[in-house]
């Protein structure tokens, strides 16, 4: 198939490629000199375009396009096309059962409405708290677990599996059994704190504690992931660094604080980005917790708000505007990470 394409390609750009030497392994030797148009022969319009593209994007740009162009176009249409379409919708006043949005009158009315909506402000703050609180707590717990396991405790492998296991569970499952554990009357959490004479606390009903309770549940699910990332980072640090720090007179705490943990910067950034993305996708967890778009009071986040506005209230344009805000937040997390990785030549 590739051969046919190449023949077709050769036919389209007659002069410059016809004399190329075909290697026995089927590849084509494209010498720099071979692409210089000979004086007197016309490269043709396609040839000129290929020439320009190749000199801009690298010598095999057009030739390799057979492999990447189709997936690239599909991705562009269904991901980035959809985002742009969503942005357009957010600029209209589309709502209710109208057949199609009216694109003739675009303005930022929906964004203004969002800023004036206390529900939106609350959801944005909750999203932010969840993002920071969940990521921070999970990283700290993961780091402590990783350090303990790295110090060669017994049953190391079993502990690693036990901690990592919750991550393999679906949000739907974990939400359901945290719902049971947080149950006001007979949940295990209230039973346990009842032993110490505390509670019972309405974990999911009390606006003040519902968000920390949800952060705790999510932390339980993802600290194993942070632990594995940190464990890999710890294993990459040569044991001489621990020994050098000890001989230098540092106590165990100081050794970790000043020598080991600073070397885990890369692991921290990778884990933090993944955890933040999970935090923004906490929609699944909240949806499963209550079985609907309306999470407990005090735990509404932008993702639930967006879906509720769009599909429950049919405020299509308003939902789109919230989606764009959420998208911008995600981008502000991923963007710096990509720049960081690019600077370190990892991309």
């Amino acid at each position: 198939m590739f051969d046919n394409l190449r023949r077709l390609f050769a036919a389209l750009s007659p002069s410059s490629r016809a004399d190329e030497e075909v290697r026995p392994d089927g590849g084509v030797v494209s010498e720099e000199s071979a692409r210089q148009p000979d004086s007197g022969s016309d490269p043709g319009p396609v040839g000129r375009v290929t020439e320009a593209l190749n000199s801009r994007f690298g010598s095999d740009f057009t030739e390799s396009s057979v492999f990447w162009l189709l997936p690239f176009l599909l991705m562009a249409l269904f991901v980035y096309g959809a985002i742009i379409w969503n942005l357009l919708i957010s600029l209209t006043d589309y709502r209710g059962f109208a057949n199609a949005p009216d694109y003739s009158n675009l303005d930022f009315e929906m964004y203004a409405r969002a800023l004036g909506d206390p529900g939106f402000i609350d959801a944005a703050i909750n999203t932010f708290v969840l993002l920071i609180g969940f990521t921070g707590v999970t990283l700290v717990v993961g780091l402590v677990l990783a350090i303990l396991i790295d110090r060669g405790i017994r049953f190391e492998n079993s502990f690693r599996t036990i901690y990592l296991l919750p991550m393999s569970l679906s949000f739907v499952v974990t939400a359901q059994f945290w719902l049971w554990m947080y149950n006001y009357n007979n949940g295990i959490v209230n039973s346990v704190i009842g032993v110490f004479g505390l509670g019972p606390v309405s974990w999911l009903g009390n606006q003040a504690v519902v968000l920390p309770a949800i952060i705790f549940a999510l932390m339980w699910q993802f600290s194993g992931y942070a632990m594995v990332v940190y464990l890999a980072g710890l294993r990459a640090i040569p044991s001489e660094h621990y020994e050098a720090a000890k001989v230098d007179g540092a106590s165990t705490m100081k050794m970790y604080w000043r020598v080991i943990i600073p070397q885990l910067k890369g692991a921290t950034i990778s884990a933090a980005v993944v955890l933040m993305v999970f935090a923004m996708k906490a929609f699944d967890f909240l949806y499963s917790l209550v079985g609907g778009y309306r999470p407990p009071n005090g735990a509404d986040i932008l993702a639930t708000k967006m879906v509720r506005e769009a599909y429950a209230n049919l405020n299509w344009a308003y939902g789109s505007a919230i989606a764009i805000v959420l998208f911008a937040m995600a981008l502000s997390v991923i963007g710096p990470y990509l720049v960081y990785e690019y600077r370190r030549d990892n991309l």
Partner: peptide
């Protein structure tokens, strides 16, 4: 004080 074969300098 010890000098290690790999030097063990703290990279950060």
């Amino acid at each position: 004080a010890m000098v290690f074969q790999s030097y063990a300098l703290y990279p950060h």
